[in-house]
Structures are given as C-alpha cells and as structure tokens.
Amino acid sequence: MAGVLDAVNQRTQLVGANRLELLLFRVNGRQVYGINVFKVKEVLQCPKLTVLPGSNPVVRGVAHIRSGTIPIMDMGLATGNAGLSDLNNAFVIITEYNGKTQGFLVGGVERIINMNWEEIHPPPRGTGKEHYLTAVTQVDKQMVEIIDVEKILAEVSPINEEISAGLISEEVHQRAKAHRVLIVDDSKIARKQITRCLENLGVEVVSMNDGRQAWEHLYEIAERGERLQDVYMMMVSDIEMPEMDGYTLTTRIRADSRMAGFHVVLHSSLSGVFNKAMVEKVGADDFIAKFDPDVLAGQVAMRVQSC
C-alpha cells in the first residue's frame, strides 16, 4: 500500500502527457473501478469522521486533513449500491474537481496503471440512463469501470447552472441565435450543464460524447469542402475522454490545413493541476475550468461579439 500512496503523490504532479493514468480501487465486492490520477491529491486510511446532521446520506461525514475540513462521500452509496460498513479498514481518495476538494470512501486501493486513451471506451449500450460511468476498459482480462464523478457531485451538491442576470446583453443574446457551438464531453451531466448554459445564452448546441466522435464529425465536414467556421462558431471540448482526449483532438484539428482558424476552447475539471503550457502546445485558443456558467457564457459571448 505504501508504494501506491507514494506513486499517487508523484504522479499527480504530471499533466499534459496525453495519456491516462488510472488509480484502481474496489468499493464492495470484486468489481474494480478507476479514477484518473490527475484528479487525485492523496490516498489515506479512513480518518476519524465527524457526522454532519442534515447532510446528504452519501456524505458519511467530514474529516480534518492538512488543516482543512473535507467532506467524505461513500462511493458505494454515491453509485446506488450498498455503503461501506467497515470504516476501520477503508480508504479515502482525496480528489479535486472543479476547484473543490472532497474525499471518496472506498473499500480498498490497488495500484496505478498507465494506459493510452485508445484503450478507454464508452460504456456499453444498454447500461441504462442513470449509470455512473463515463468509460470502461480492461485490465488483466477484467473489466474496469471509470466513475462519472461529476454526476456524483452534481447529485450530492448541486451547483448553480444559471447565468447571472445582466451578464449577457440583449444584443449579444440576439446575435447568438445565428451561431452554433460544438461541445464535446464524455460526462452526461457535464453535457447537460454546458448545453443548458449555452442555450440560455442563445446559441444552438450540438454535443458529442468523445474526441473520436467529434473528430470524425469535423473531418467529414472538411471532406465535403465546407469550412468548420461556417458550420460552428467554436468548439468547447473536455480534455479527459475515452477513445480520443481533448489534447489529441485539438492537435489533429491544428494539423489539418482545411480546419485552420477554427476556434477551440478546452474545458476541464483539471483546474488544480492543469498545465497551461500544454494547452498552448496543442494549439487551443483558450482554457476554462469547469463548471462556472458565467465564465463559460462570458467566453462564448466574447466569441459571438467577435464574429
């Protein structure tokens, strides 16, 4: 276990290597789950938890860690399964998503694996609308399920999805109606949040589930002889996605001369450890952290005004 903990501390400093490193863990039973190491700040034995009356049942309590108070969520309960009963032998994975720190209570932590995004695939069809997966992969002939943490967080602690009153002028709102934006994100809840925000701004939204799907779509447009700018005002893409990540998607767009000038914004919950140099290296026009409706709407509004 010490080796796993040391590896987490070292590898969370790595960003922009265009690969996926998964921390494998179990909740209850034999099923193995994965979480991106870039989102992990620390792994530790379950500390003493202080129960907060009136909190969401998924939150088992708060823990005082490194001079801070962090909510600890039961990964079993969060994904619609049985909660953990043996806290003395449980572990907590401390993560950072969208600029906020929280811990996830799990039954056991195994190891870190290094994989290519091509080895990560969308959840199988028939999984159901309410599943908590963004992707699956196979390790040592065993299925590994990658958790949609953004869905969990949205259910446990809903965030404001409304654009602040007065932020968008009526002129921009009217001009936005003439434009279409492509959004790319593997998280169903993230796609809904982004779509709702941009539709309230006034633009038409087309959404794709991963980078490969988006690339094939854009490539087909270019093959027809159309300019991407004539079809979409811009693209807002997540970075971590199965099949093809946002870095690779952006690199391919920039390498195709037919797509020159297409406006690309990368949008990620990797806010805490994000390496802006990598965004510049792949040629994205900008980066914004998830999910602040005012920031996202402001970014798209500026693009509307410049078109």
Rank of each mutant, 00 (worst) to 15 (best):
K188H: 04
L228C: 04
M259N: 03
G298F: 12
M259W: 02
K41L: 08
M143N: 07
Q229K: 01
F91G: 03
R212F: 08
T137G: 09
Q193G: 00
V279E: 06
V62W: 04
A176N: 09
M208N: 00
D186N: 13
H131A: 12
L5S: 15
E96V: 10
H217T: 06
N160H: 06
C307V: 15
H263Q: 10
M233E: 06
T137K: 03
A154H: 15
R254D: 02
M75H: 14
Q138E: 15
G103V: 13
V109E: 07
Y33N: 06
N116V: 11
L77G: 05
Y232Q: 01
V265Q: 00
I35P: 03
I94S: 01
M75T: 15
T251N: 09
I65G: 10
S271R: 03
V92S: 07
V206I: 12
L49V: 07
L22V: 02
I221D: 04
T69A: 13
Q213V: 10
I112D: 13
N56R: 00
V32S: 03
K188A: 07
I146N: 05
E96K: 00
D285W: 07
V282Q: 10
H179F: 13
V32A: 01
N9A: 15
P242W: 06
T79A: 09
Q31V: 12
Q193I: 11
R252Y: 12
D285Y: 09
K100T: 13
R11H: 15
I152D: 05
T248W: 08
D74Q: 07
G211P: 06
D186L: 10
G54R: 00
D292N: 15
Q45P: 04
E280L: 14
R227I: 02
E243S: 12
V144H: 08
Q13R: 12
G261Y: 05
Q31L: 02
F104N: 04
S237T: 13
A190I: 07
H263R: 07
M234G: 04
R196K: 00
E220H: 08
K192N: 00
D245R: 01
F91K: 02
Q45E: 10
E155L: 12
A165G: 06
D148I: 12
D148C: 08
K41C: 00
V156R: 02
V8D: 12
H179P: 02
V106M: 05
A63H: 05
V139Y: 15
P158W: 09
P57Y: 00
C307Y: 14
Q299F: 08
A301C: 05
L198M: 01
V205P: 08
K192D: 07
L84V: 14
A301Y: 04
G211F: 02
K141V: 09
Q102F: 13
D245F: 13
G298V: 12
V273F: 09
V92N: 07
A255W: 04
D186V: 09
I35G: 01
S306Q: 15
N116H: 12
I72G: 08
S164K: 08
A178P: 01
F38L: 11
A277E: 15
I120N: 05
K41W: 01
